[in-house]
């Protein structure tokens, strides 16, 4: 995909979001109030119209720089998915199990092979977290 195409698509995406807000999200997720100068949906509607209009302008003009690197985006997507899994894991198994596993997976993703550094990330970081949060701040971990 070329930068102008991406610019057009991102503009359309914002315009579509603005339209979805106006047609569906704002009516369904704000309450109707019959008095006052600022209603609950006043500012959201202003923002939605702005997104719709500016998104269309962006789609038409397709200006501005784009810095997409598909290799990087791929790894970021994987990291984000792993992070989402880690959030689920922390809720299910707790930090003391999930933390080290998550760190280990990330270290493997980066490709670290030196045992000392692997140990530092997998054992050291969760241990420091535990010390700071539980021992020093007296707060519970997930």
């Amino acid at each position: 995909m070329t930068p102008p195409l991406l610019n057009r698509l991102s503009g359309l995406a914002f315009a579509g979001f603005g339209a979805a807000l106006l047609l569906w999200l704002i009516p369904a997720h704000t309450e109707t109030v019959s008095y006052g100068f600022m209603r609950p949906d006043t500012l959201p509607k202003v923002c939605a119209w702005a997104l719709l209009a500016l998104g269309l302008v962006q789609a038409a003009l397709a200006g501005g720089g784009v810095a997409v690197d598909f290799y990087e985006t791929g790894i970021v997507a994987i990291t984000a998915l792993l992070s989402a899994a880690a959030v689920w894991g922390m809720g299910r198994f707790g930090f003391l199990v999930t933390g080290p596993v998550f760190a280990a997976v990330l270290v493997a993703l980066i490709g670290e092979r030196r045992p000392v550094w692997i140990l530092a990330a997998v054992a050291g970081a969760p241990a420091i977290t535990w010390l700071v949060v539980v021992w020093l701040l007296g707060r519970p971990l997930p």
């Binding site: 992070s83 880690a86 959030v87 922390m90 930090f95 933390g99 998550f102 760190a103 990330l106 270290v107 980066i110 490709g111 670290e112 030196r114 550094w117 692997i118 530092a120 990330a121 050291g124 970081a125 969760p126 420091i128 977290t129 949060v133 971990l141």
Partner: peptide, 16 residues
């Protein structure tokens, strides 16, 4: 320390 240690640790800190 190498990035392979710093960034996973930093992410864990952000989580907590």
């Amino acid at each position: 320390a190498p990035e392979s240690v710093i960034f996973p640790s930093a992410l864990l800190f952000c989580f907590i």
